[in-house]
């Protein structure tokens, strides 16, 4: 049963982050996942120090607040400070992460928290946190992730036209009166929520991987947007299953293995797209 819940968790994370990753890919902002998952560390630590517990709600709120702050800071640095956008991102998230590490070391004595647990939150512990519902023993993270997936799906299909048009041609969108900044911020907010919710249960590496790798592989195979979203979910499922059994086999980190598995799939899609173009040519 543990295997089942772990795979389900992996699949849920992949399908909710993958949808957003799709848009990030088109906007050339794929490194945002990496940036956010580093930058929320101080938020988590501060929330922990204030609430004094490892209950997930305060940590979750702290992380979300920090995610939004990160987005705003990057925006401020690049638009008001005229930094080039990649440098603005790099400066903000490394700074915040350093602050987080300092806080962790400073309060290491009093607090049962370390930077490792944030970076490599382990998917293997998911089945341990069961809560029963309607006679079913379902791990709590699965519930949270299920809600996340539903919310993301609703937001995604509600907003995808706006995000598409602002991704492909921002100037045009602006000229016909679409509020591009609003769309940008809403995507960033959704990304930080998804990042935070998922990495609380599966760790940062897997979030970064699932945010971009399935979307990129799907993008190699098809141009059709709806087919892309289906492929992303399928890949998430395969990565989760494959990753779990790789980890079982070598006896290593499950999150890491799932990241590796999704890369293997990317490599396969890459080869496939090469063969395809050769035939056409």
């Amino acid at each position: 049963m543990d295997a089942f819940w772990i795979i389900i968790t992996g699949f849920l994370v992949a399908s909710s982050t993958g949808m957003l990753g799709n848009l990030l890919l088109l906007r050339r902002m794929s490194m945002m996942g990496d940036a956010l998952s580093h930058a929320v560390l101080p938020g988590i630590v501060i929330a922990y120090l204030i609430s004094g517990s490892r209950a997930s709600l305060p940590l979750f709120l702290g992380a979300i607040v920090m995610g939004v702050v990160t987005t705003l800071l990057i925006q401020f640095f690049s638009s008001k400070g005229k930094m080039q956008s990649d440098a603005a991102m790099g400066t903000v998230f490394t700074f915040l992460f350093a602050v987080g590490v300092i806080l962790v070391t400073r309060f290491a004595g009093e607090a049962d928290i370390d930077a490792d647990c944030v970076l490599h939150g382990e998917i293997a512990f998911v089945p341990l946190q069961t809560s029963s519902f309607l006679g079913l023993n379902v791990p709590a993270p699965v519930w949270t992730l299920l809600v996340l997936l539903l919310v993301i799906q609703v937001i995604f299909w509600w907003g995808y036209k706006g995000w598409m048009i602002t991704s492909f041609n921002n100037e045009y969108a602006q000229s016909i009166g679409i509020r591009t900044v609003l769309w940008h911020y809403s995507l960033m907010a959704a990304t930080s929520v998804a990042t935070v919710v998922s990495f609380e249960s599966v760790g940062a590496i897997l979030v970064i991987a699932f945010l971009v790798v399935p979307a990129a592989s799907a993008y190699l195979i098809t141009d059709n947007f709806k087919r892309m979203t289906l492929l992303i979910m399928l890949q998430g499922l395969i990565s989760a299953i494959l990753g779990y059994y790789i980890a079982e086999w070598v006896g290593g980190s499950i999150s890491g293995s799932m990241a590796v598995a999704s890369f293997l799939q990317f490599a396969a899609c890459f080869a496939w797209s090469k063969v395809g173009t050769k035939k056409e040519g």
Binding site: S30, M31, G33, D34, H120, I205, L206, I208, A209, L211, V212, V213, A216, I246, A247, V250, G252, S253, S255, G256, S257, M258, A259, V260, S262, F263, F266
Partner: peptide
Amino acid sequence: AIVLSSFFGLGIV
């Protein structure tokens, strides 16, 4: 992002 997450993931394993 692809290379970062997969190499680092491999490293963690």
